[in-house]
């Protein structure tokens, strides 16, 4: 048991916390093929769930803080390292680096809450809700296509797009961050499954290609 008396506020817990896929770290490293497809966990990002009508006045205030709300499915808003993913017509997920969290000196969630004020809607700290897998490399798209029925070709899924969908039969938010790099946001309880599923999908690319 951790000596809870010695912990100093929420930051005292930081040393003993584990990310949802931390037990897979070695496996992810072993399963990654440098230059072909690389999978790693990018844990502990600051995330906030927003529900607000984007056309309303409070929606405009929240958009100003978040750096712009996406208008439709697939779009990604935000600025300065903050991504705002579209989850629904009035539902958004803000993803920011860990340092943006209020407990580390940032003010992302506090300022979003202040921008919403007492207006209808909500801002919820969801940092522990999802973890992040970063999948990159020339074969990243081929790996995802094994378990995702969306058209992932760049002509319909360009960088800077995010979609709410299923990968390997579990719901994830899939964001394309670059030409050959993706971020997957599964819920924490699915992290183990999705991590192992992706490793399995990646395994064939470790062998030389059969002509």
């Amino acid at each position: 048991m951790a000596n809870t008396a010695a912990l100093n506020g929420i930051n005292g817990l930081r040393d003993i916390r584990r990310s949802p896929a931390s037990h897979l770290t070695a496996a992810l490293e072993a399963g990654s093929i440098e230059g072909t497809v690389v999978l790693q966990e990018g844990p502990f990002q600051t995330m906030a769930g927003i529900r607000v009508d984007p056309r309303s006045e409070e929606g405009a205030r929240v958009a100003a803080v978040a750096g712009g709300l996406p208008a439709r499915c697939g779009e990604v808003g935000g600025a300065d390292g903050v991504s705002v993913l579209w989850l629904g017509p009035s539902e958004f997920l803000v993803v920011a680096p860990e340092e943006a969290h209020d407990s580390l000196g940032g003010n992302l969630i506090g300022s979003l809450t202040a921008a919403l004020g007492g207006a209808p809607g909500q801002v919820v700290d969801l940092s522990a809700n999802r973890t992040t897998f970063e999948l990159s490399g020339a074969r990243a798209r081929a790996v995802l296509e094994k378990g995702c029925s969306l058209d992932l070709h760049p002509r319909s899924f360009p960088p800077g797009t995010a979609l709410n969908t299923e990968v390997g039969n579990i719901p994830v938010v899939l964001e394309k961050t670059g030409e050959e790099s993706f971020r997957l946001f599964p819920r924490a309880s699915f992290a183990d499954f999705l991590g192992r599923w992706l490793l399995d999908a990646m395994r064939e690319y470790a062998s030389p290609e059969v002509p």
Partner: peptide, 11 residues
């Protein structure tokens, strides 16, 4: 109506 064509399993 919001997301376009998707598999039945998402619904």
């Amino acid at each position: 109506p919001n997301c376009g064509s998707r598999d039945e399993t998402e619904f």
